[in-house]
């Protein structure tokens, strides 16, 4: 067993009714590492997090956090874990600073110590001037920052972030990323879920893509993109018949193609001369570096998931 692993999940599964929300997934997170769980809605990300916290009881497999078996040591595990949940569940009956101090009390942190930590965290998340404000008067970005600050009140050895910037404007998102990067640089072990590929690319050392409760792929972001997608992507828009011709014409190159009818995606692993002249024929052509989003869509498909 790996001494340095903060989280070790092996063969964990969970069924709700007759649907397997998670079917046998395994992963581990090393100390100081940031692992991202990616996947479409309903892929099993939140269920996996809830199993780590004992909010959902697995139907099989084993979970160890800080080297402790989860089923028998939930209190100890949660004592060292900070969670920023997907839904805003700040306490609307309390002010900003009361939220932090009250939350600290659930960890057995005394009021004096809690106030000191709350002051530091509010400073770090640029909320110092809001400390006596009621929650209703905070903006969406401020609430999110407070949720993250609250999750750090116990100085967690494992920091779990479930879609930490969902629904925020770019300014608010970038501020949060900057703070999370600082935490990461300080050696905090993180488990992140997100729909924002940019967020994952910025923060995560390693990514696991889940689909329908299974691990589809796992690895370092840049390596996975290079191996499974390529270096560059060319997107061509035009009439269907013309796209079909192009798709056939590039078959000799080291590429893969994908079409959704009105748009052709050509994923390039090497150079391909035949693509270079396309712009001259009245087609709309965009050439850009391959990214995590391409990988995600290649692996989980382009159709919507809300059945």
């Amino acid at each position: 067993m790996n001494q340095e692993a903060v989280v070790e999940v092996s063969g964990v599964k969970k069924r709700f009714g007759d649907r397997w929300a998670v079917s046998s997934i395994s992963f581990s997170i090393a100390r100081g590492e940031c692992l991202a769980l990616l996947g479409p809605n309903g892929a099993g990300k939140t269920t996996t997090i809830h199993m780590l916290l004992g909010l959902v009881v697995p139907d099989g497999g084993s979970i160890r956090v800080f080297g402790l078996e989860a089923s028998g040591h939930l209190k100890e595990i949660k004592q060292g874990t900070g969670v920023c949940p997907q839904n805003d569940n700040l306490d609307p009956d309390l002010t900003v600073v009361e939220n932090l101090v009250t939350y600290a009390s659930y960890f057995g942190i005394g009021k004096r110590e809690a106030l000191a930590r709350a002051g530091e965290l509010l400073e770090f998340f640029a909320l110092s001037n809001r400390s006596d404000e009621v929650i209703q008067n905070l903006s969406g970005g401020q609430r999110r920052r407070l949720l993250i600050a609250r999750a750090l009140i116990n100085r967690p050895g494992l920091f779990i972030l479930d879609e930490p910037t969902i629904g925020l404007d770019p300014q608010a998102r970038h501020l949060i990323w900057e703070r999370l990067e600082a935490l990461k640089a300080g050696g905090t072990t993180m488990l992140l879920t997100s729909h924002y590929m940019e967020e994952v690319s910025v923060l995560a050392d390693r990514v696991i893509i889940l689909d329908s409760g299974r691990v589809v792929v796992e690895g370092r972001v840049d390596e996975l993109v290079r191996e499974m997608v390529g270096n560059q992507v060319v997107e061509v828009s035009g009439p269907k018949a013309r796209l079909q011709e192009i798709a056939e014409s590039v078959e000799g190159c080291d590429v893969e193609t994908e079409s959704n009818g009105t748009r052709l995606y050509v994923y390039l692993k090497g150079p391909c001369d035949r693509l270079d002249a396309l712009g001259d024929h009245g087609l709309v052509v965009v050439r850009r570096p391959a990214n995590l989003e391409d990988l995600f869509l290649r692996l989980t498909g382009r159709r919507l998931r809300e059945e």
Binding site: L53, P85, N87, N89, Y103, Y106, F107
Partner: peptide
């Protein structure tokens, strides 16, 4: 939900 993410069972 928020409380259950802490050591409070």
């Amino acid at each position: 939900e928020a409380i259950l993410m802490t050591p409070v069972s």
